[in-house]
Structure formats: C-alpha cells, structure tokens
C-alpha cells in the first residue's frame, strides 16, 4: 500500500507543481491546495499504514494507529487553511485592483 501511496503522492506533487507554474492566479492557488493534500498524505504514509484501532483508548484494542502524524496533520490542515484563505482574498483583491490574474502581466517594469 505504501508504494501506491508514494506514487499517488508523487502524482499529486506533479500536478500541484504544474499548476503553480501556470499563468492564472486561480490555478496557482488550486495548485497549492493540491500540494497541501499531497503533503498530508505523505505525512500519513511515512508513519506506516499498519492497521490498528483509531487512537481512542476507549476502544480497548491491542494495537492503535500512530497518533503523532494525526496530530501533526491536524495542525497543518488548520494552518494551510488559514494561509490559503488569506492567499485567496489577496488574489481577489489584486484582481479587483489590477484587473488581471495573469501572472505574466503581474511583473515589475523592465529594468527595475
């Protein structure tokens, strides 16, 4: 399963990077959220996908899944949500002001 997950993460990375390299600001934001998903899946995979009970002690199971990556990913989800929403509103405002979301037009003047 880890092999498949690793490949899937690689593909997600690839698509994310591809979107980030595009011209439209909206696609760049979509690319970052795909990258975020990829990273979260990677974190989960790297902690091994061994089966066990969810880390809830009431289950009285003999084995539990690793709670640490879960805690890390949870933190990461919240942070990336904050950053993405900020980024999105920033894109929205820049669209309003500059009347474009084309990254090639959003560059400084030549020779500056």
């Amino acid at each position: 399963m880890e092999l498949m997950m690793s490949i899937a993460v690689g593909i997600l990375f690839m698509i994310g990077v591809y979107l980030i390299l595009s011209r439209s600001l909206l696609r760049i934001i979509l690319g970052t959220s795909l990258l975020t998903h990829a990273v979260h899946l990677l974190l989960l995979t790297m902690a091994r996908l061994k089966k066990g009970a969810p880390p809830l002690l009431g289950e009285q199971a003999s084995a539990y899944t690793d709670p640490i990556p879960a805690a890390l990913i949870l933190t990461s989800i919240v942070i990336s949500f904050g950053v993405t929403s900020f980024f999105f509103v920033l894109a929205y405002k820049s669209y309003q002001k500059l009347k474009t979301d084309d990254m090639e037009q959003l560059r400084g003047d030549e020779g500056e």
Binding site: V9, G10, L12, F13, I15, L21
Partner: peptide, 9 residues
C-alpha cells in the same frame, strides 16, 4: 513538475 513528482516519490 514531472521531475519534482518523481523525486518526491
């Protein structure tokens, strides 16, 4: 992007 994805995998 292919390179980045491959490296990550």
């Amino acid at each position: 992007s292919l390179g980045v994805g491959t490296m990550v995998t």
